[in-house]
Amino acid sequence: MNEIVTTRLKPVSANLSRHKGVRRHAAIFIAPALAVYLLIVIAPSIGTLWISFTKWKGIGDEAKFVGIDNYKQLWNNDTFRGSFGRTLTLLIAGGFVVFLFAFIFTMLIREMRSKKLIRAIVFFPNVVPPVALAIAWGVLLAPRNGLLNEFLELVGLTSQTRTWLGPDLLFRSIIAGLVWIYTGFFVTILMAGVDRIPAYYYEAAELEGASARQKFTRVTLPLTWDVLSVAAVLWVILAIKTFEFIYAFGGSGTDPSASSWTLPVHVYVVALGNRSPILALGQGSAIAVVMVALVGALIFLTRRVMRRAVVEF
């Protein structure tokens, strides 16, 4: 009995495997992509790991092996701690706001007639060059002649005007900009999950007298859990590696001031910097390794926390 079942259910792929030379074909199909991937991404990653154990200023300078000195220096380096802290702030505080807004949007526009149009509009910043977004955000928040301050004065809220780009608020302004950009991205992803939920689940819940909050926690949340877990992983990656907007916004084309650095900006300025590179390749590489480790650890953690039996429907 069991045997019959297994043969009957054997997937088509098994049939294909029996085909002569399938493995060889699979290898031919995969090898070119794999080769380029190994050469451009994997090999340099290993290279970075190696360089992070050296003191080196690049071609022409002899790399000196220093063990874990670079990492030890990072541990005691206030600038690095600042960058690390800001990356975590963006990840956690920014992530909280992005997901909160994304959920609010998704639930609100679920029943709206113009939902596809709204989704397209809030997603739009994600296809705009980050430099253009940084310019727009600068125009909005400039202390003198900035749109926001001028608008506040116009409507009589002069007391609410701030130096948005001053050292105190600069990074918060950056986070606000990233929230504006990325909320649309996650609205799109969450909506794809919500759209798969059959409407009669909500109708049934309504018949039973469920409130909006109950509909959210009892229907939407469990049934979009798998999409949500993918979205959380994507946010971890996005938040840690986002660079262009922060770099352009903080420095308008020159290296930005350290009060806006996150880890990627820090790597860039220390190792490659635009105007006056420090060329501390070893230290830059050590930060880069920390970044990858952070991404890896957080993805692992996210998956662990979010792991839960997927509700089939």
């Binding site: 340099p44 690049g58 990656i237």
Partner: peptide, 15 residues
């Protein structure tokens, strides 16, 4: 590879 930031490969890549 999706999780590896470009920053983490750019130095050896350049070299």
């Amino acid at each position: 590879g999706i999780g590896i930031p470009v920053h983490s490969i750019i130095i050896p890549l350049f070299l």
